[in-house]
Each structure stands twice: as C-alpha cells, then as structure tokens.
Write a protein that binds this DNA or RNA. Structure first.
Lengths: 188, 188
DNA sequence: GAGGCTATACTCACTGAGTGAGTAAAATCC
DNA sequence: GGATTTTACTCACTCAGTGAGTATAGCCTC
C-alpha cells in the first residue's frame, strides 16, 4: 500500500464544495443545481457527481446522512466537514492558475461563489487574477525568448497561448466594469 | 466482462502516432523527440509516454520489437500497425474541435505533422479549422441567446468562450499569412 | 384502467489521464 | 575513483469521465 501523494488537477470537486458550502444537499438535487447555476462552465455528468461525492466522503471532506422518504427513494444529504470547508476556502481565496481553462472554469466559478458569499471579494479576485495572468505572460515571454527559432511549432504554441492570455486579460477588464455598473446600478 | 464502448478524449496518443508515423522509434527516444519538437504543446511525462505506448500495443495500434544492445539496456522499437496508421490519418485529416484546448494542442500538432508529411495540407487544415471555429461561434451565440439573463455566470462563461474563439480565429488568419510568407520567402 | 413515459435517487464497472517513485547498468565528468 | 548523468523502462497508484443499469412513484393518454 502506497502513501498516495497524488496531487492532480482536482478541479471539479470545488464546484461541489461550493454548492454544499452555500447549503447542504443530496446528490440528485446538487447535480440539478450545478447544471442550472454553472452548467455552461462545468460539464459534469450525473454519475460523475455521485462518484466525486462518494470519494469526498471517503476522504472525509463531506459527510452524508441518510434520509428516509415514505414514497420516493431514500437519499443522502451531504454537508461539508471542517476539512472540506477549509479546502473550499483555500481554493476560493487563492488565485486560479494562468491557463485559459483555469480562467474559464475555476476563476468564473470563484467569482460565482464570491458573489454569493461575500460580494466584496469579487474586486480582490479580479485584481489578483490580473496579476496572475500578467505573471504568466511574463513567464511565457521568457520561454519564448529561450526557444530557438527552429522550433517553429513550439513557438506557435507559445504565441497562441500568449494571445489567448492577452485576450483573457481584456475580458477581465471588461468583467470588472460589468460588475461595477452592476453594483452601482441596481438589483443584484 | 463489459464490451468497453468507452470513447474518451484520447488526445495524447495522436502525438505519439504522428511521431511514429514519421519514423519508428523506441520509447525513450520518442519521448525526447516529443519534448524537442512539441514540448510546449504536449506536456507528457516520460512514464505517461510509456504507459500510452504499452496501451496502444495491447490495442494493436503499434507493434514493438525488442532490440538487444551489448552495453546499453535493451529497448523496444515501435512502429504503427495498419490500424494505427489509419487512426492517425483519421485524426490528422479531420478538423479539430472548436475548443481553445483543441486549437492549442490538437490543431497545432496537426499543422506540425501536415508540414512534415505533405505541406500542401496546411492550407486546407487552416481553412477547415476556420469553418469549424465559425460553426462553434454560431452554436455558442445560439446557446447564449437561449440562456436567460438571470444565469449571470453561465452567460459569463459563454461570453468568455466566444471572446477566446474570436481571438483564436484572428490567430488563424495570422497563422495563414505567416505560412504564406514562409513558403514564398525561403528555406523551409 | 392499462400502457408508456418521465422524474426521483443512486450504483457500478469500466477506460484513460497523469503522477511519482523505483530499477539497473553504462557513460561521463571532476 | 567516486559521484553524477544518461539510457531504458516498470509499476502502482489516484482522479476524470463514460455509459449502462436499478427500482419505484407519479403522470398522461387512449
């Protein structure tokens, strides 16, 4: 038996953590909420939702309680354990990676939860993410400079990433102003 | 025992298929080539390379032959089987998906192999990929139109993807002109 | 009121992605 | 001549994601 020092992407669990942070729920309903609220962002299947939930329970991040119902099937309501809540807050409060995928999926999710939990965080998240992207751009520029011109396609890949990150930065700007007009303007 | 009808992303195998298509090789060297040629595009580890190679052999897409060496460790040279070659050509000659990841990883790899195998294909690939992206944009626009304005964050995700795809389209244009000046200009 | 469909609620077995440690001998460097 | 690097590959693991299956209740239709 190994010690299991695996630290992978572990991304989709955070969506579930977040929804359970907002309020406890059972798998079926949780999946419905995920689709309704963040369905364009996370593309989980129902069975994957259950898979993750079961894993998180084994790992002690969520706790499930069986609820009997007279007519409908039994269900298990999950809520976050302390370690689960900690995990989520850790993920929530630290900037996402500077990949496009991280921006599209993780960052936007973090904005969603920030907006629901403590909307003041939104500004900090956006500004920190800008820094993150700028750092990423600097590193990519450096890598580009270190990549000899014979490696045409490696350079193409780098160029592509740089362009995409620049475009993401612009989007971040617009995102900020959108939130600004949203909060000064009207009903949230 | 199930029938195993799984069809997943199956992406990284195509990089290996391509390199083996160019010429047969053993795992160690293949990994070196991958890093040197497409290291900024595919981020495989050495062990993952071997993993995939072994799987592909079990599935009959590549064939390995043991080569004894007097001093250095034995190695196994792999070449594509007919089904492997078919698989690769299938992947190579059909447009990549219209996600950013597909553009960055799969499309650029396909350009790399096209450039090495039959450089005339490059033009077709670029033009077909433009179509692909435009179709994707249309679908996203439609989804956006179908997404009620309450779903703020779903809309944010869609908006982000649209912007990124538009930026990718611009890159495709520039990519085309870069290839044009490359071929009219000078030494390939 | 019988037959079919949809909603509720979840399980299970699988393939593939990706990690990280380990093995072992030759070559090379200091 | 001792330490490190290079060559060459294995193995056991965790997590991502799929797709089929289970079983009952409610609803709609003819």
């Amino acid at each position: 038996m190994k010690e299991s020092s695996y630290v992978g992407p572990r991304s989709p669990e955070n969506a579930l953590f977040g929804l359970l942070y907002l309020h406890p729920d059972h798998g079926y309903q949780l999946y419905q909420r995920l689709v309704a609220e963040l369905g364009e962002i996370w593309h989980l299947s129902q069975s994957q939702t259950y898979n993750i939930l079961n894993r998180l329970e084994k790992q002690g991040f969520v706790i499930g309680k069986l609820q009997q119902q007279d007519k409908l099937p039994d269900r298990r309501e999950f809520h976050l354990s302390d370690s689960g809540r900690l995990r989520f807050e850790e993920w929530l409060n630290n900037p996402s990676g500077c990949s496009i995928r991280a921006m599209r999926v993780e960052f936007i999710s973090r904005l969603y939860f920030a907006h629901r939990i403590d909307s003041e965080k939104v500004w900090r998240f956006i500004d920190e993410q800008k820094l993150q992207l700028n750092n990423g751009l600097d590193r990519l520029g450096q890598t580009m400079a270190d990549t000899p011109s014979e490696q045409v396609f490696n350079r193409m890949g780098l160029e592509f990433r740089i362009r995409q990150l620049e475009s993401a930065l612009e989007w971040l700007e617009d995102c900020r102003t959108a939130f600004e007009t949203d909060t000064t303007g009207a009903i949230t």
